[in-house]
Design a protein around this nucleic acid. Structure first.
Lengths: 215, 215
DNA sequence: TTATTCTTAACCAATTCGGTCTAACACTCT
DNA sequence: AGAGTGTTAGACCGAATTGGTTAAGAATAA
């Protein structure tokens, strides 16, 4: 079967998993996201995940069958979550640089309120090379190429910046700030959406004030 | 013994380790730094470290006695390295904001050229809670309080910034940029000191141009 | 009550863990 | 050449942990 395609999110067992009370479900998802993101596929253990989620290890195997399946399921699930949020909130027409970056951060914070480690997991998954998952994972990555958060960073409008300014550098600076502020929020446990985005707006306001051309 | 104090850097076995050809020595140090930083004390394994360093596991135990000793030795060694570089290059009088941040980044890059994961290791060590090392580690951390890179960030001179600007925000932005640029260098494998610091200077130049008061 | 579904503790073989031991190596000094 | 000395690796140890199974207990619905 050259083009066998498995959808882990809508498998049989998965429906039962999705039918769990959302508290327990998210506890399991978050535990798995944390351990896979922090330790990578190989060193993350099912026992540890079960322990963090406060369920028995057997329950994980009941719902996911194997460690590999859990991992791949997580990857698909995360992409689904991100893409749905983007579809719901990303206004296609909006091209203003700071408005788009604000939206970028808004989406990240709002998702992280529920799944703190989702983005850490997704970026670590892109470098996962463990032999047990690498093949299936690579095709999932390929499927999701060009989707996801990165779509928010294309076709940005730099027209309002001062003429002599290097746009790539401004983009880097802004994204580094977004990353830094998000890490700060995460570390402090403060992922309240409004407060977090309000703080970020202060930084965007400052950058806009000095980088946009004065006229 | 309430106040027993062990200096892991100058122990007996350590002298022999320090007498190794520097290539082999650094290979061992870098492998250990990488694995402890990436996986934490518990999940980092001596076999993996030995494998990465391309020496046998027994050699590690020959020089360090135990995993715990290797970890604590590393922590002391890293602090020693950082403090020596700071002592050599940090000019006490210099207080200009951007000059100090430049120095901060310069020192980081120059150390990371030799020990890529040194700072990742040091910051991960500050959160290490594994029961086997936490007690000894905490007293080592206490010993090094107020030393290290953080000393470069005190008494900064914000006088030249525009009056209405929030200095804490400017500091955050600048440090986030430093962090981001360093991560970029690391990811690309480009840790050439001059090129790296030159790129960073571009960012500092841009920030200075727009944030320093125009007069 | 019974039937069904959810959940877990106990268990499995296999691997990996930190650590040891022994012997092969390379070296200088005689 | 041979004796001695320090350096290194491979085979090995018991103990712990791994991914995964099983069978039986708790909960729920009929």
């Amino acid at each position: 079967m050259l083009t066998e395609k498995v959808n882990y999110v809508t498998g049989e067992k998965m429906e039962k998993f999705l039918a769990l009370p959302s508290g327990k479900r998210d506890a399991i998802l978050n535990a798995a996201l944390y351990h896979f993101a922090r330790y990578g596929y190989h060193k993350a253990s099912m026992s540890d995940i079960a322990g963090s989620a406060k369920v028995s290890k057997s329950l994980l195997f009941h719902y996911f069958g194997s460690k590999k399946m859990l991992y791949l399921y997580l990857y698909e699930y995360c992409n689904k979550v991100v893409n749905e949020v983007i579809a719901a909130y990303a206004v296609a027409g909006e091209r203003d640089f700071f408005a788009r970056i604000r939206l970028y951060q808004w989406i990240k914070i709002s998702i992280m309120r529920r799944y703190v480690d989702l983005f850490d997991f997704l970026s670590s998954a892109n470098f996962e090379r463990d032999g047990e998952v690498v093949d299936a994972l690579d095709s999932l990555i390929e499927e999701n190429r060009g989707k996801g958060l990165s779509t928010l960073l294309i076709d940005l409008d730099y027209a309002q910046f001062a003429e002599d300014i290097d746009c790539q550098m401004v983009l880097n600076i802004t994204l580094w700030c977004a990353e830094g502020q998000l890490a700060k929020l995460k570390k402090s446990g403060q992922l309240h959406l409004e407060a977090g985005i309000e703080e970020f707006e202060c930084y965007l306001h400052l950058l806009r004030k000095y980088f946009y051309q004065k006229s």
